[in-house]
Design a protein around this nucleic acid. Structure first.
Lengths: 242, 242
DNA sequence: CGGATGCTTCGGCTGCCGCCGAAACGTCGG
DNA sequence: CCGACGTTTCGGCGGCAGCCGAAGCATCCG
C-alpha cells in the first residue's frame, strides 16, 4: 500500500502543457500578471484564469491583487526546488529541446532558481565551499561550518537573521543542467541578493538567465569577502569555466 | 519563450493516479513485479502494463526480466529525489497509508533461491561486499574484484573451477522479499554450498527457508574467511543498493 | 507435452478536461 | 458617469487517454 502524500493531483496540474509553461515562466522568482502568463502559455485569458485558480488552490502559486492586475508568483522555494528536480528528470529523459537558441548556453552558465543562483557557476561555487569545508555534506543535507559562517558574514550575509528564519540556511538544490547540487536555502538567496546589490550579476529580462559582469565574475571567483588571491571557485585543471 | 527542459510530459505521466501509486510504491528503492504494481494501483494487469511501458520510455523506470516475472524499479535516485520533492509540495493535502507487513519472517530472513542464498541475510551480504568493493557493479552486472577473489578463496570457493565454468561467477539476482539484489551465479552457489558444509545453515524440509545456527550466524556476519572481528555485514541503515 | 501463471497487445467504450465564445465583474482614466 | 482594459464565470464542444475484455506470448511446473 502507498505511504506518503498523494502526488497525483499536483503532478496532474503540472502535466498540462499550458500550466507547465506558466510555472516554468515563474521559475525566475518574478511575479507575472495573468495576461502575461496567458500569452506565455499560448492560451486565451479565460483559459489561463482557470489554470491559475486551480494551481493556487493546490498551493503551487500565490496571487496578489494590485489595481486591475493580479500578480502571480510561485508559492515558495519548495515549489521551485520541485520544478528544478522535475527539469532534471525531464532533461535526462533524452528529450532534447529544440529550443536551442543562443540563450541556452547562458542559461546553463548562470540563472535564477526561484531566489538563488543556479547553473555552472552556482555548482562550482558549492563545490569550492565544500572543498574548503566551509560547507559540509552530512547525510542528505548541507551544514554551514564556523569557517563558512565567517566568510559569508564578511561577504554581507546577515547570518543571525537567517538563523532566526524558519527557512533552513543551507539547502542542497539539484541543478537540472549540471546534474549536481547547488546552494539554495536562505544562504543561497542571500548570496544572490548580494550579487545583485554589488552589481556583479544582472538579470536578463524575460528569461531565467543572469549575466555576470567582467569584474563581477573575477571577484566572484575569488573567495567571497576575502582579500587574498585564492580563487573562490577552485576549478580542476581540466575543467573550464568560461 | 520557455527555457529549460519541458516538464509537462513527465508530469503528465505522474499525474495519473494509477501511475502515481506505482511510483510511490517504488519509492523505497525496492523492485516490484508488474502484477504487484497493478494490484497496488487498483487496475488490471493490462492497464498497468501500458502504464509501465510509458514510464519506462520516459526514463522514469527500468524493467528487468527475470523468469516469468518482470521486476520494475525507479530509473535512478534522481527520480526518487524528484518524487520526494513532489511529496513535499503535495503534503498540504496528502494522506498516508500503512505498508504491508512481512508474511513469513523466516522466509524473508534467509531462504534458498535455486542454489544460492536469498532473503535479508543474502541482500545484506551483497551490500557489504559492494561497500567494501570486493564486488563492484558495472552497468548491468556484478564483477568480482581481486580483493573479493582473495576473500572468497580463503572462505573455500574454488575460483579457478568457477572461472572455467560456462556459468557467470557473479550474477545479480533480485530478491522477492527484500526487492533488492543478492548474489547469484557460480559464486553465490559456492557460498551456499560452503554454508551447508560448515553447518552454519540448515535447510527446513518442505520449505525454501534455511535457518542459521547461532554460531553460524555470528560467523557469517564476520568477513568470510577472515580472522579479524570486523563485521562481515557492515551496512548503514539508509544505504541503498539498487 | 499440457495446464497454469505472468505479462503484453489489440480494440472499443466512456468519462474527464482543456479549450474557446460570450458575458459579467472590478478597476482605472477621462 | 462612460468607455477601456484586465480578469473571471458560465456553457458547450471536442479530443485525448485511461479503462477493461479478449486474445496472444513467454515461462515455469508436473
Amino acid at each position: 500500500m502507498r505511504h506518503g502524500p498523494d502526488i497525483a493531483p499536483v503532478a496532474a496540474l503540472i502535466g498540462d502543457p499550458a500550466r507547465a509553461a506558466m510555472l516554468t515562466a515563474l521559475m525566475d522568482g518574478c511575479a507575472l500578471t495573468a495576461g502575461e502568463l496567458a500569452r506565455e502559455a499560448g492560451v486565451t485569458a479565460q483559459t489561463a484564469s482557470g489554470h491559475l485558480t486551480k494551481m493556487e488552490e493546490a498551493g503551487l502559486l500565490v496571487r496578489r491583487k494590485q489595481g486591475r492586475h493580479r500578480y502571480v508568483a510561485l508559492a515558495g522555494d519548495e515549489v521551485g526546488r520541485m520544478l528544478e528536480a522535475m527539469m532534471g528528470v525531464a532533461a535526462a529523459s533524452g528529450r532534447t529541446r529544440t529550443r536551442t537558441g543562443p540563450k541556452e548556453p547562458a542559461l546553463r552558465e548562470a540563472r535564477v532558481c526561484y531566489d538563488h543562483l543556479a547553473g555552472g557557476q552556482a555548482v562550482a561555487m558549492l563545490r569550492a565551499l565544500i572543498g574548503r569545508e566551509e560547507i559540509v555534506e552530512d547525510g542528505e543535507g548541507l551544514t554551514l561550518t564556523d569557517a563558512g559562517a565567517i566568510r559569508f558574514e564578511s561577504f554581507g550575509a546577515d547570518l543571525p537573521t537567517l538563523r532566526r528564519a524558519r527557512r533552513p540556511i543551507c539547502r542542497a538544490c539539484l541543478d537540472w543542467s549540471e546534474r549536481r547540487f547547488h546552494l539554495g536555502g536562505g544562504l543561497g538567496a542571500a548570496v544572490l541578493t548580494e550579487l545583485y546589490g554589488r552589481g556583479w550579476v544582472k538579470h536578463e529580462p524575460g528569461t531565467r538567465a543572469v549575466r555576470f559582469s567582467n569584474s563581477g565574475m573575477a571577484l566572484f571567483r575569488m573567495p567571497l569577502g576575502s582579500k587574498n588571491r585564492r580563487q573562490f571557485i577552485q576549478v580542476h585543471p581540466n575543467e573550464t569555466v568560461p
